[in-house]
Design a protein around this nucleic acid. Structure first.
Lengths: 228, 228
DNA sequence: TTTTTCACAGACCGATCGGTCAAGCCCGGC
DNA sequence: GCCGGGCTTGACCGATCGGTCTGTGAAAAA
């Protein structure tokens, strides 16, 4: 069984985590995502769980620890989740798989995702959450490795690797600001559209077919018009 | 004189705004950007300004109004700021100018930018800030118009316009999460790199030169390697 | 000179914050 | 029976929150 098999509700995966702890983490993640860290009180979390506030302190030392479990746990899983979904094959297709997998994670564990990408970034005391940051680094370095691989294979031009990674991650990280689950397109489909744009570029002209390049399937319609 | 000439510290521009009001807006914007809305208290703002807390309530009705002035003011200015910097010429070059101008705004009025793109997006009561949202819509619709123009001119392929706008704005909106003013590249240079990537795409192959397309200047170095 | 205006300060308010504590409840082992 | 320990509670704490109230001093208006 993988590290993911014990995952529950997209939040925690520690083997010893009880149902109550998982419930608290799930509700807290949802609240942090919708109201922010400072905007979510311990009373809010307790009310959402239908338990007393004191019980939160029985399971967690303080508010920071709840947030850390939501954010660190989710970021660790993000790396493993994505890594396990990268197929063998053409490097550019691995980048595409990376984007689709990240989008899938976003769709499935949306609250934990938003909580981990929203809060604390501007907190001057953010080094409390060092572990989460290094895990996020691992995730980003993994993408950079894929980009370098695609360059070495000659599938993409010799672009700046860190900047390319930032462009790709920006398109995914910003999605929670505008994504509407009620609309037709899934996050995975959106990720494929972004990959197509970033990989092929916007400018008109002949598209050069590469070994494992351009997604051959017709992407989908999200708005009024779509083509290639 | 333009609407921008009365702008001060990237925040407010009302003609009747006193120095003290501008000072409060500037300090509040900085604090909202660094600690978030909920994380910033009225006492914090007063302390940063070196005034009493009561004085804040002499100039503003409440905390929401201070935030609204920071965010709405800055978002209005963003649209005007960018619009005035779009040159006549090839549509794709207008998109490039749009990105560079947005990046310049980000560099110059960073606190107001972060405050306006950070807080309140997840607030269920966000409709308090309706005015800001419609102004942000105007800004985004402006970009979509430029994209449609480039499609009609045949400079870019028939991509999905809203999705293309989201990709472009994602790359710029996410910048405040990783941008380091101490590093060499300016936001404007970063915007040019992103435009180059998005416009030309990553994949290798011959680049087709268009009337006013690819920025001919060598972009710059931000990391270890860079080429095209 | 008297009056009005207004930027400003300090004391204060009820509400809520994160966090503590002592005590119950419940259930399996003796 | 009863005993021990983990799950759970409500009362309570000091601190801080957003916001109000009363006054003050100095400049402008009369």
């Amino acid at each position: 069984m993988t590290e993911l098999s014990t995952m529950k509700d997209g939040v925690a995966n520690q083997a010893e985590a009880s149902d109550r702890v998982l419930q608290i983490l799930a509700e807290a993640g949802r609240l942090f995502a919708s109201k922010g860290f400072e905007g979510t009180s311990m009373r809010d979390i307790a009310l959402a769980c239908g338990i007393s506030k004191s019980l939160l302190y029985h399971h967690f030392a303080n508010k920071d620890e709840i947030y850390a479990r939501v954010a660190v746990g989710s970021t660790l899983e993000l790396y493993l989740f994505v890594r396990d979904r990268i197929p063998d094959g053409a490097p550019s297709q691995k980048i595409r798989a990376f984007m689709v997998a990240t989008a899938e994670y976003f769709r499935r564990y949306r609250w934990a995702w938003i909580a981990s990408t929203t809060a604390f970034w501007n907190d001057p005391d953010r080094h409390r959450h060092k572990e989460r940051l290094t895990r996020r680094d691992r995730f980003e370095n993994f993408l950079r490795g894929l980009i370098q691989e695609a360059i070495d294979a000659g599938e993409i031009r010799k672009v700046d690797v860190p900047m390319t990674g930032r462009l790709i991650l920006s398109s995914l990280n910003w999605m929670h600001r505008w994504y509407n689950p009620n609309k037709s397109a899934t996050p995975e489909q959106i990720a494929e559209i972004f990959f197509d744009m970033i990989f092929n570029g916007l400018r008109s002209g002949e598209l050069v077919e590469l070994p494992g390049a351009v997604p051959p399937k017709e992407p989908l319609k999200t708005g009024r018009r779509k083509s290639r």
